[in-house]
Design a protein around this nucleic acid. Structure first.
Lengths: 143, 143
DNA sequence: GTAACTGCAAAATATTTGCATCCTT
DNA sequence: AAGGATGCAAATATTTTGCAGTTAC
């Protein structure tokens, strides 16, 4: 049975991060797995309706980010976007891939295979990580 | 007299963008000229105290951004940072330089001379603009 | 059983809107 | 004088905090 094995997988992820496997966490985590694009707090709230408290969603996203399950994507407007991490560990994110924001469908996508470039900085500056966000038109929206 | 010539310069910028030159706009614009790093709404509010209404600051920042006087810098936390534009026109920003966020002094700096790299995207994706935000330690904060 | 997690209430903070008044041109 | 800009009040939205009750392990 498909559903059961997914639940096991979610349990597994949570336990590896030393988080207890609760219904709300499994549900929110599954939303990320079922979505190709990044999600905001608002997106999640819309999806789950009043099933879970808004505060729980805030706390869950924060916990997931701290534990390296999801990462925040910088955007110029005020919404914090989150997406699944590939290889992040607690307290240390390795999301050195490019994020693509489509101006047509408004979706934000992790281009996991496109790594951030090395950038030559002026003398005295030391880079820790490089975040790249590209605006444009995505594959799906090309006419 | 120095002060007067600065005022003239601010007037000039505002008039070129077809904005009337008001005290609050000149003040806020001058803050950007006097700051090396990017500013948030909150920074500006702190600087001007209760001299101008909070709403005026919101509206001024929005107007400045629309007119291409300042640009918003994407960050992963919830604060929108603004910095002066170099060559932006109304409705079209050309801020293809790198932004540097120092993890020590927390300042965000426009590296105007470091341009965003060309990035090879997967088939079907078309880039409009490339935003690069680098976290690290800035020149001033190197021990 | 116990520590961790959630829901509820409420506080704190941030942002937007409408409208009357004032200022720039 | 006229249109645009500001200030104030208030509505709305967002995020945080404390605490009591519930759940996972």
């Amino acid at each position: 049975m498909q559903t059961k094995s997914i639940t096991i997988r979610l349990n597994d992820i949570l336990h590896r991060k030393e988080l207890s496997s609760t219904e709300s966490r499994r549900k929110i985590l599954s939303l990320f797995f079922n979505s190709n694009d990044a999600l905001t707090h608002g997106d999640i709230e819309k999806e789950v309706g009043h099933k879970y408290d808004r505060v729980t969603i805030y706390r869950t996203l924060q916990t997931f980010e701290e534990k390296g399950i999801i990462h925040a994507i910088p955007t110029a407007d005020n919404a914090i976007l989150y997406a699944l991490c590939k290889d992040c560990t607690e307290g240390h994110h390795h999301d050195d891939h490019v994020h693509f924001i489509c101006t047509a469908c408004e979706k934000t996508i992790c281009l996991d295979d496109v790594v951030s470039p090395k950038i030559e900085l002026p003398k005295g500056y030391v880079a820790d990580n490089v975040q790249v966000v590209i605006n444009g038109v995505c594959k799906e929206c090309q006419s």
